[in-house]
Design a protein around this nucleic acid. Structure first.
Length: 272
DNA sequence: GGGATTGTTTAAAC
DNA sequence: CGTTTAAACAATCC
């Protein structure tokens, strides 16, 4: 379940290995042509062939390959993985695409649930218009969060998951951030005080940065490189810890549903 | 075989 | 009518 820290980890892993390479072709695997979200297979290749990867960056949960002209974007969704080499347990039937480089090397897109997608855009305007603020950018401040929370009477959980509000948060880090700030996921945005907004802002930035420093969180399926998993899982306070004790007050952690999503809360620390 | 899992898009409800 | 919520969708595993 790659969220911002996991995507950033992947970007940092592949960047030094593929920057400078020239794309020869991009081939869907197992007849899964819809892995290309924006174009047909033919169109996609026409646009990409011969282009050099100038840099690899992250925007929200998108992996962005900056090319000579235009951008190749990859979204891992739930189970997508980028591999430079295949190992024994990488079954061919789980591959959805292979990028061939001019130097005879490859980049494999493995995705056993096949929700992940590749996109091509001439400009990043399209996704920049759809995505909200980058939570690790300088412009994301406590002041920004307080002001913008006031525009919504939505519940905090679905609001924080909304990529057009803040780009990059997913189920894990939203639950962790709300627990850290002692905010209930069903509290509505405009009722959050200035002080609480500051605390939530700090929690989000601290969690994301610490998770990146620990190469992300592996719950089930996040791996990068040669089977390496994220180490942040050990530092999760509440996600996946239902029926265990709250690390802060000892109350039993509950798993509830908020906006159709599994949500972990401490009923003592987090109240509306 | 039903339910859980994800983020995004689309449809419905408020 | 704009905002918010729910459902649909992709596919797989247990």
């Amino acid at each position: 379940m790659p969220e911002l820290p996991e995507v950033e980890t992947v970007v940092r892993y592949v960047r030094p290995k593929i920057v400078g390479k020239t794309i020869q072709k991009v081939v869907p695997q197992n007849n899964y042509d819809k892995v290309f979200a924006t174009h047909t297979v033919r169109q996609f290749n026409k646009l990409l062939t011969g282009q050099v990867i100038k840099n690899v960056v992250r925007r929200g949960k998108f992996i962005v390959f900056n090319l000579d002209r235009g951008h190749l974007l990859i979204h891992l969704r739930m189970t997508g993985r980028l591999l430079l080499k295949l190992s024994e347990d990488d079954k061919p039937k789980h591959l959805t695409a292979i990028i061939y480089f001019k130097d005879k090397s490859f980049l494999y897109f493995k995705d056993y649930r096949k929700f992940g997608r590749l996109y091509y855009y001439d400009s990043l305007d399209y996704i920049n218009n759809k995505l909200g603020i980058e939570p690790l950018s300088k412009s994301f401040t406590g002041d920004w969060l307080f002001k913008n929370l006031q525009n919504y009477k939505r519940q905090l959980k679905p609001l924080l998951l909304d990529q057009s509000f803040i780009a990059g948060l997913g189920n894990i880090y939203v639950d962790e951030a709300l627990w850290s700030a002692k905010l209930h996921p069903q509290q509505i945005g405009l009722s959050v005080s200035r002080k609480k907004a500051d605390i939530l802002h700090s929690a989000i930035q601290r969690l994301l940065q610490t998770a990146i420093d620990n190469q992300g969180t592996t719950i089930i399926n996040f791996y990068f490189g040669k089977g390496k998993s994220g180490n942040f899982r050990d530092q999760l306070k509440i996600f996946g810890r239902q029926d265990k004790d709250c690390p802060r007050c000892g109350t039993k952690i509950e798993k509830i549903r908020v906006a159709q999503r599994g949500t972990h809360i401490c009923p003592h620390c987090q109240r509306i």
